[in-house]
């Protein structure tokens, strides 16, 4: 990882327990912001944002090196959101990271906002790529990792993708390319929520056994509970300890739950685009806060 000072990256280090608490607190705030954004819009990919909030939090509150006031600082680690519709969660993470003002979140999806429904690098500070056409992110990530290594940069590339993107052949072109070029500076985070636009992943296109596929492509593979912050941090630590040294790209397969943190939504029929009634937003926020505080945090 790039050498940094405390001015460059807001919070780092501490004991494992301190890191875990910091990331869980960030994840709580990301979820809270996502609910607020969803309420302003009256809709949105809130279910995905809640499900992936722990992953975003682990990345921004523990892993990434960056300068909030200079999102294009050359020495930054790159976080690529391939899954453009997860932007709602990413914006909340960018606000949590201090890269965009928290007050701006309420413009999500509105005309002339810097925060469009599907994430684009040309609109939003800190957004590295324009995702949305699925299966692109990992190909760009391979090029970035190659380019950074070529330029003798120690920066890392983390690509966030969804399990739906495992349907795309380009994802596997990139997986093979990353291994061929021994990109130890590349990590893929796969959100396995087992749901895609037309329904359950195993009914749309069966991608399991997912771990075996990545392993066959030569990657360092871990599969964890993606809503267990401790498991996520341990996985990142294992990547730092193992994959980089071996010059292998690493994938962390994260089994997550859509709507995580809000029981009302966790138990609702799973949908790609979740409908939430006007009166339910406050209930969602209360359930989120009760759950977070109830765990003694």
């Amino acid at each position: 990882m790039t050498t940094t000072t405390t001015e460059q990256t807001p919070v780092r280090g501490g004991s494992f327990e301190e890191r875990r608490r910091r990331v869980e607190a960030a994840a709580y705030r990301i979820r809270h912001s996502a609910l607020n954004m969803g309420e302003v819009q009256g809709q949105g990919y809130v279910g995905q944002a809640l499900g992936a909030a722990d992953m975003f939090a682990a990345v921004y509150a523990d892993q990434l090196t960056y300068r909030p006031e200079d999102p294009h600082w050359e020495g930054r680690d790159r976080f690529l959101l391939s899954t453009g519709h997860y932007a709602i969660g990413h914006y909340a993470a960018l606000a949590e990271a201090g890269i965009i003002p928290e007050a701006e979140l309420e413009t999500y999806g509105s005309d002339d906002s810097r925060l469009p429904m599907s994430g684009m690098s040309t609109y939003t500070p800190g957004m590295e790529i324009s995702g949305g056409s699925l299966g692109h992110g990992l190909t760009i990530a391979v090029g970035m990792a190659l380019g950074l290594r070529h330029r003798n940069s120690a920066s890392r590339v983390i690509n966030f993708l969804s399990d739906g993107e495992l349907d795309e052949g380009s994802t596997w072109e990139a997986a093979m390319g990353a291994h061929h070029h021994q990109l130890g500076n590349l990590t893929a985070l796969v959100d396995i929520n087992a749901l895609q636009a037309d329904g359950r992943t195993d009914s749309v296109l069966r991608t399991e056994p997912v771990a075996d596929k990545w392993a066959a492509c030569g990657w360092h593979v871990q599969r964890v509970e993606g809503n267990d912050v401790g498991a996520l941090l341990s996985a990142f630590d294992a990547v730092a300890a193992e994959a980089g040294l071996e010059g292998r790209p690493a994938v962390i397969l994260c089994d997550t739950r859509i709507g995580r943190g809000v029981p009302l939504l966790e138990t609702r029929e799973k949908a790609h685009f979740m409908r939430i009634e006007e009166h339910e937003w406050q209930i969602c926020r209360e359930q989120l806060t009760n759950g977070y505080e109830g765990e003694g945090k």
Binding site: I140, V142, G143, M144, L146, G147, L148, M176, H181
Partner: peptide, 28 residues
Amino acid sequence: PERFFQMGMAEQLLFGAAAGMAETGLVP
């Protein structure tokens, strides 16, 4: 040779990776 990158018979990767390299300041 150190500035040449063989991407395999994978054209989507070829151009996605070229974009990524350009994002790091290279001219592919």
